[in-house]
Design a protein around this nucleic acid. Structure first.
Lengths: 363, 363
DNA sequence: TGTTGTTTTGCATAGCTATGCAATTTTCCG
DNA sequence: CGGAAAATTGCATAGCTATGCAAAACAACA
């Protein structure tokens, strides 16, 4: 019924003819500061100074230049400055997994923070680690000043590749460190402890740790914290269930659905992230007839918007994106500002427990 | 309007540090092709050719160059080429509203497509139309080749600002057109018709159109299609309820929650997007005691991942992101390839109805 | 070997702006 | 008004690579 768009039918081509022959030249050659200088009757230096705040130029000259620039449609060109200074004010942002709303939001905040610091975002989306190398080559060929990545830097090889760039790198939630590499981590281990204590207060006896892929170091840290917290609280030790595949809703759903066959019946679940937790809630109800929070208490991580949606009402840990981004900017500034060579710092931000209905047992 | 001086101001702090960086670079200078040439005992041209596929160079020379380059850690530099060719192979991508998973996914796909076409993404996140002007100035100062934006270009002023850049612009779901501006639209109106027909088949009698903000032209088109479809089908005409604020889950929830007081009791809702639809489902249950699909059939738009989550199981229209991105790339290639001046084309992609439980009335 | 044709190499340059420095103009003050 | 100080302006250049063109090396062939 809805057939593929026949775009030859729906397409409207509108070609606009030039009124003056001049604009065609403008395509071939952009308006330069020399053009403006000629039009304003000043030197090219004056044009440059008119657009550089704080430089030595009289109000009258600046006025003339700006007028000429406006009439010619001149736009300052930062490319030559990159060559001269060796600084492009571009930061390579390497991301993946935007289907997780947490990363999408983080990217948004990061982009805003970078913009406000006068830095541009050269975005590189990578599907897997394989494409990372060529992605880095590309970024570097544009002479980026630094790299910020939210990828969970899993392998030593990736760390080495990053270090060899001899560029400041700031990672989110990466456990590996090395020269040139700084990281901002959520306090994953601490949050795991808090999660376990919360279950202890509710008297849970059959906790389950719903783990993300083992290559995800942040997930591993959450699990370690949780299991330790469970031991500390004196609850019977937590059962580990690891999702197959990625840390998505479907993976969480499937992992819990499999419990049915195995005869496992948890009364509390701590999930490596919110999407998996939502999948778990639905699987419990649909496959096992268990309801949250009446039969099972559930906690996630990330505090994605959907955790607050009423159908899930999911207790979660907020990663405090704003703080983490602010820290990342600090580390970045520090790395960019120093002349002392490779900087490597780590910085940990506490996650905040957001209690919602999914852990309010109504027994 | 386009205050160029203003954004220069915000980079002053960083600029000062750049001086130090320059001074420092005199000591730790990036490896250039000249360094490699010296090390390999060849001319700088040879180095350039060794890294330009298809250029005239003997295997032996290339070998020497690559070896020297590897040992020095040389990385090709595209910045001078930008100056020479006037082409940066960077595309400015202007986005906002990543909290809507649909846009996040679209960005991911777009970034991938651009990368595969050898284009870089210079990302610009804008919170509102106010920051757009300065954002554009920044992008242009990096000599981007084109702009792609998923913002709903609402106002004539924005269109004019974009046109004045004299750069190819490709918009998603924008109704306004103009020189230099091409658009890829979802068939919003057609989808509205389809939605109405679906309700007609189910015998609904009290349809409600849950409208997004009136400035959103895509939302308006969906509403027009729906209302016309409702008329065509002979159902009593659809009631309009417009959200206050943005097109989010909360807005959808609140809009439906308000129905209670007004004594409105729909038996079918077509929502401007999925997030609002999810809010509507929850509000119906919590505030009015109505259940979906038993009491009310609900449809959304975008087919975000959450629409498939079992707690919502929402019928939706898939915007066929892959197709839309592919079309956008075609329009982009066309605009970049032509020398004939400003191109303006429009292209429409049908949305695909995804029927799920929210419209499977179990009466 | 000489000649012609082909491949490879190096030279020289363009591309545009920011900035140090010197020259010039303006301002200030005695 | 004169001269010193300050402000402004212009000149010249650096920054790095891709590429047209000419020169050189090489290959093929008689």
């Amino acid at each position: 019924m809805c057939d593929i768009a026949a775009w030859h039918d729906c397409t409207v081509a509108v070609r606009l003819r030039a009124k003056h022959a001049t604009w065609e030249n403008a395509i071939i050659r952009a308006v330069t500061s020399i053009d403006v200088a000629r039009a304003a009757g000043v030197s090219q230096s004056a044009v440059s100074r008119a657009f550089s705040p704080g430089s030595s130029i009289s109000a009258r000259t600046k006025q003339k230049v700006l007028a000429a620039a406006a009439s010619l449609g001149y736009r300052p060109n930062r490319i030559p400055a990159i060559m001269l200074s060796g600084r492009s004010f571009m930061v390579g942002v390497v991301i993946g997994g935007l289907e997780n709303p947490f990363y999408a939001t983080a990217l948004e905040r990061l982009a805003t923070a970078l913009r406000e610091s006068g830095l541009q975002v050269l975005l590189m989306h990578v599907d897997d680690a394989l494409t990372l190398d060529s992605a880095l080559d590309r970024l570097v060929s544009y002479r980026i000043d630094a790299i910020v990545t939210s990828l969970a830097i899993g392998s030593k090889a990736v760390v080495q590749a990053l270090s060899q760039l001899r560029l400041p790198v700031v990672c989110f939630n990466s456990s590996h460190v090395g020269p040139w590499i700084s990281t901002v981590n959520s306090n994953n281990h601490g949050a795991g402890l808090v999660a376990a204590r919360l279950l202890g207060r509710h008297g849970m006896q059959r906790p389950l740790w719903l783990a993300g892929p083992s290559r995800n170091s942040a997930s591993r840290a959450r699990g370690r914290g949780f299991c330790q917290g469970v031991r500390d609280t004196g609850i019977p030790s937590a059962r580990l269930v690891r999702v197959q595949g990625n840390d998505t809703y479907d993976s969480g759903y499937d992992a819990i659905a499999r419990l049915q066959k195995q005869g496992i019946r948890p009364d509390a679940i701590f999930s490596s992230n919110d999407m998996m937790a939502c999948g778990a809630i639905d699987a419990l109800r649909e496959c096992m007839g268990l309801h949250c929070p009446h039969d099972v208490a559930i906690m996630g991580y990330d505090n994605i918007p959907q955790a607050a949606w009423r159908s899930y009402d999911l207790t979660s840990f907020d990663q405090q994106t704003d703080q983490m981004v602010a820290r990342a900017m600090q580390l970045l500034d520090e790395a960019l500002g120093t002349q002392d060579g490779p900087v490597s710092r780590t910085c940990i931000v506490d996650a905040q427990l957001i209690e919602r209905g999914s852990t309010r047992a109504a027994r």
